[in-house]
């Protein structure tokens, strides 16, 4: 069990580093979502199931939706139109 815990904690550190280093904003966001899921497993191992439920619903669910919508607004997603008003203004 301790090995599993340490694996999860190392996974958290790897996720944090790669979220910080990833070039693409979308991959940063998805890595952060994986970070939240691992965090909710760690809450379960720390005997805090309330936190696990909240983190899974909030960290991996609502937070990711908000980040994705922001990425859509700032035109960082592929397949959406690039920002044309930038050229008009400057």
């Amino acid at each position: 069990m301790e090995l599993f815990t340490i694996l999860l904690l190392v996974g958290l550190v790897v996720c944090a580093v790669s979220a910080s280093l990833a070039k693409n904003l979308l991959s940063t966001l998805l890595i952060y979502m994986a970070f939240s899921l691992m965090m909710s497993m760690i809450w379960l191992l720390l005997q805090a199931p309330d936190l696990a439920i909240t983190e899974a619903a909030v960290g991996a669910g609502v937070d990711t939706v908000l980040f994705l919508l922001t990425l859509k607004t700032i035109h960082a997603l592929k397949g959406t139109r690039s920002d044309k008003s930038h050229d008009e203004k400057h």
Partner: peptide, 17 residues
């Protein structure tokens, strides 16, 4: 049981979204 206002509300909100 585990849960309560905040987690339940977040699940309901995510479902609505």
């Amino acid at each position: 049981s585990p849960g309560g206002g905040f987690s339940g509300g977040a699940i309901l909100g995510a479902g609505l979204i």
